[in-house]
Amino acid sequence: MTTVRKPARREVSLATRESLYGYGFILLWVIGFCVFTALPLAQTFLYSLNTVSVTATSINLDFVEWANYSRALFTDPNFIELLIGFSVETLVSVPIVLIFAMIVAMFLNLKFRFKGLFRVIFFLPIVITSGPVIRELTEQGAASAPGIANNPAVIAFLEELPRALRSPVEYLLTSFVLILWFSGVQIMIYLAGLQKIDRSVYDAAAIDGASGWETFWKIVLPSLSTVTVVNAIYTIIILSHFSENKVIRYIYDQTYNVQGGIGYASAMSFIYFGVMVVILAVICFALLRWARRSSR
């Protein structure tokens, strides 16, 4: 009854078996990726090269080459403005979120009374960061650094600044608190990174006479370098996918606009995606270089 297999063949079949089971486990995801990501992405790209009109029963494409892209980049007065605004805001926000999250995480890593209470409060943004709620908060004026942005001295100071520097500073003042609302998960990730540092390293540094300041720059910061890269990527993506983001709102409005339409909105989506990837690459490149240098 039993068939005796040759050992060699059996070994091959084991490896094949393993990879077959592996594929089996990820099969659902692969199908999903094709149906819900790859295919729609390709279709959106196709739309971006066409003027698209949708009727109740069909979708009509009219090939226009790169016209949608050139319109977005060279003709549309709003889009480029919004895109620049988004880039500036992201480049300002990411360092603030990272520094703030790192500081809060270091606080939470200390031992003190009522720590549980503070932890619960500091992680509130994880549950509350949703589009409509944040919009309500902004409308109440709860998002700006209290009173600073309306101070006449500050306004006068802003007017003295060169134009290129003015909008980031203005954004910083008006949205500082809003930026802090985006740091919940990052605090958590930093805290995990801090807790991975071995206590004995601190003790050794203390015995060698290192001050807290030196310990931070020589031990804590280098150990947090990989976590920082993760946090930076996360922050950029969350900020750029946020549904109240002005660029996203504009693209969404254009989708249903008679003058815009699906083709134009698709082209803008791809330009936006490109800008986002560039920002991601710039920040990651800078951080990775720093990480490599500091871990040496």
Partner: peptide
């Protein structure tokens, strides 16, 4: 990474 608006219309 891919923003949702890059895939949402065909979906």
């Amino acid at each position: 990474i891919i923003p949702p608006q890059n895939t949402v219309i065909p979906q």
